[in-house]
Amino acid sequence: IDGLRHGLVRYRAALLIAALGAVFSPVGIYFAHQLPEKILMLLFSLLMVMVAARMLRRERKDQGPNDHGHANWGQKNCMLDQQTGRFSWTAKCTATLAALGAVTGVVSGLLGVGGGFLIVPAFKQLTDVQMRGIVATSLMVISLISAIGVIGAFHAGVRIDGVGIVFIISSIVGMLIGRKLSARVPARALQVGFASICLVVAAYMLFSANA
Rank of each mutant, 00 (worst) to 15 (best):
L126R: 04
Q82S: 15
V103W: 05
N72W: 08
G109W: 05
C93I: 08
G109T: 10
L97K: 03
K76N: 02
T104F: 00
L111I: 07
G105V: 10
L80D: 10
L110W: 05
W73Q: 14
M79W: 08
Q125H: 05
K76S: 01
G116T: 11
R86S: 12
F117E: 12
W73Y: 15
V113H: 11
N77C: 13
A99W: 05
A95G: 10
F117R: 09
T96I: 04
T84E: 09
V103F: 11
T96Y: 02
A99V: 14
A71Q: 01
G116P: 11
N72G: 15
K124T: 06
G85K: 06
R86G: 10
V103L: 15
N72M: 13
K124P: 01
S108P: 10
L118N: 06
A71W: 02
T104W: 00
L80W: 07
C93F: 04
K124L: 08
V106F: 05
D81Y: 04
Q75V: 01
V103Q: 02
V103T: 12
A71T: 05
T104H: 01
Q82L: 14
K124C: 00
Q82F: 14
F123W: 03
L110V: 08
Q75N: 03
V120H: 00
V113M: 14
G115M: 09
P121N: 01
G116S: 11
M79R: 11
A91G: 11
G101D: 06
A122D: 01
G116D: 07
L118F: 03
C78M: 09
L97I: 13
P121A: 00
F123C: 10
K76W: 00
T94R: 12
T127H: 01
V106M: 10
A99K: 06
A122L: 07
V113N: 08
V120A: 11
G114S: 12
T84K: 11
Q125N: 02
L100F: 01
L110T: 09
Q83W: 10
K124I: 09
K124E: 01
F87R: 04
L111H: 07
K92N: 11
L110F: 05
G115D: 09
V103R: 03
G115W: 07
L110Y: 04
T90W: 02
A95M: 13
M79S: 13
T96V: 04
Q75P: 00
L118G: 06
K124Q: 08
W89V: 10
L80V: 13
T104S: 06
N72L: 13
G105H: 06
A122P: 04
A95I: 12
G114C: 12
Q125M: 06
W73C: 09
K92Y: 02
S108C: 13
P121L: 00
W73L: 15
L126N: 00
I119E: 00
K92F: 04
A98W: 03
N72R: 13
N72K: 13
A71M: 03
A99D: 01
N77M: 15
G112Q: 06
G105T: 10
N77P: 05
Q82H: 14
C93V: 07
T94I: 14
G74P: 04
T84F: 08
T94E: 08
G115T: 11
L100N: 02
V120Y: 00
M79F: 07
R86N: 14
N77F: 14
V120C: 05
Q83V: 15
N77Q: 14
A99H: 02
F87T: 09
W89F: 13
W73I: 14
T94W: 10
N72H: 12
Q82D: 15
I119N: 07
R86W: 09
K124M: 08
T94N: 09
